[in-house]
Design a binder for these strands. Structure first.
Length: 390
DNA sequence: TCTGGGGTCCTAGGACCC
DNA sequence: TCTGGGGTCCTAGGACCC
């Protein structure tokens, strides 16, 4: 497995396209740092840090606004190199992917040779530095690339997996963030070796069944997940920061309308439909709530989706009045499966049996002899089902 | 030092079905 | 009058990732 990860992606694209930025600390973003060049990272600037704090840490910092079209174009070019490298590519985000090169020995050489060539190709064809981790499993390859950054290549040799893994801090494990790390530290668990030796039951008790088992497996380098080609996203969303202070409800509604418009446009461009609309709100105190609504039949109708979104906002309005609203977001999920072109329906597994059972009970209880069966496709208020003759 | 925008996956309770 | 066991789906919240 190869894990290929572009270094400081957005910032690197900026430095590639503007020679005056090379060798200087660069941050992409404004209010918040979206990406920092290695020169900026050297003075402590980090992704997700506020712009003000970043400037304090690094007085020479050059802050540039994002040029997302350029990043998308660069990403496309890099993924073309990936596609030329292996038919088994799984994109993880705009700037990283897994490549399964296990079957390419005869035609392309060893994984290390393939990885070296990949780095050269990305450098020559796209002008960006990329770090590659090579290991027998996805997880280990990802850890290897993280350790090898920037502009590196790291191979975890077969048989040496646990020696490589065990001394690393728990934060290196995929799925350990701030909260889990704090829980683990509280129990004196600091390294991967500590996690591995703790035992699965103790981890499950601490972190829940899924996370506990997941972590235990990773700590023992058990990661059977294959590279999955052509994964489709499960949701499409958008959000907008509103700034502090009070906002007129009309402005909030207008923001939501704009958001829905943008997101539905992307839904259409992807040629997909959705069944669930989720409204996200965030408040002054960083508290957040979500409100969602699902319809039975997937739709891409912008009017219908906007109506649902506005209704969710109306329902959430009482809490908006009490707490300062700072962010509004919308997400469309339960996307249809585009392979069949058929919207995915809930209850799809056994509707016929359910209907037969209901009919049997009607006969039994009421002695009904003529029964009309219909299929109800919606349950929104105001929706009426057509009745069909038996 | 309170901050962007885009996502995935898991958990838990409730309603409902056989 | 009261109870088993196996499931799906929806909703809300939370952790985590880039």
């Amino acid at each position: 497995m190869l894990h290929a990860d572009l270094d400081s992606f957005y910032a690197s694209v900026e430095q590639r396209d503007d020679p005056t930025l090379r060798g200087r600390p660069v941050a992409v973003g404004g209010g918040v740092v979206l990406a920092a060049s290695y020169e900026a990272k050297a003075c402590g600037v980090r992704t997700a840090m506020s712009g003000r704090q970043a400037r304090q840490l690094c007085p020479d910092l050059v802050v540039v606004p994002g040029r997302f079209d350029a990043y998308v174009a660069a990403s496309k070019a890099v993924f073309e190199v990936f596609a030329d490298t292996s038919p088994l590519v799984e994109g993880i985000s705009i700037d990283e992917a897994f490549l399964d090169v296990g079957g390419l020995y005869r035609i392309a050489g060893s994984p290390v040779q393939i990885a070296s060539r990949l780095r050269v190709q990305v450098r020559e064809r796209v002008g960006l530095a990329i770090t590659v981790g090579v290991a027998p499993t996805k997880f280990l390859a990802k850890v290897a690339s993280a350790v090898a950054k920037p502009d590196g290549l790291l191979v975890v040799p077969a048989g040496g997996e646990l020696d490589f893994l065990r001394p690393l801090p728990v934060e290196r494990l995929w799925g350990v963030g701030r909260v889990s790390a704090a829980k683990l530290h509280g129990r004196g668990v600091r390294t991967v070796a500590d996690v591995a030796d703790l035992g699965e039951a103790a981890l499950v008790a601490m972190l829940g069944p899924a996370a506990g088992r997941h972590l235990f497996a990773l700590a023992h380098n058990h990661d059977p997940r294959p590279v999955v080609v052509g994964r489709r996203r499960g949701s499409i969303g958008g959000q907008r920061a509103l700034g502090h202070g009070r906002h007129a409800i009309g402005d909030v509604r207008a923001a939501l309308t704009g958001l829905v418009d943008r997101v539905v446009r992307r839904l259409h461009r992807a040629d997909r439909e959705c069944r669930t609309v989720t409204l996200r709100l965030r408040f002054d105190d960083m508290g957040r709530v979500t409100r969602s609504h699902s319809v039975v039949r997937a739709t891409g109708d912008s009017t219908a989706l906007l109506q649902i979104a506005q209704r969710l906002l109306t329902e959430a309005l009482p809490m908006v009045y009490d707490r300062g609203l700072t962010l509004i977001g919308i997400a469309l999920s339960n996307l249809d499966d585009g392979d069949t072109g058929q919207p995915e329906l809930p209850f799809a597994k056994a509707p016929a049996a359910a209907l037969d059972g209901a009919i049997a009970r009607l006969r039994e209880r009421f002695g009904a002899t003529a029964i009309t069966r219909g299929v109800l496709l919606g349950r929104d208020p105001g929706w009426s089902a057509p009745t069909l003759p038996d």
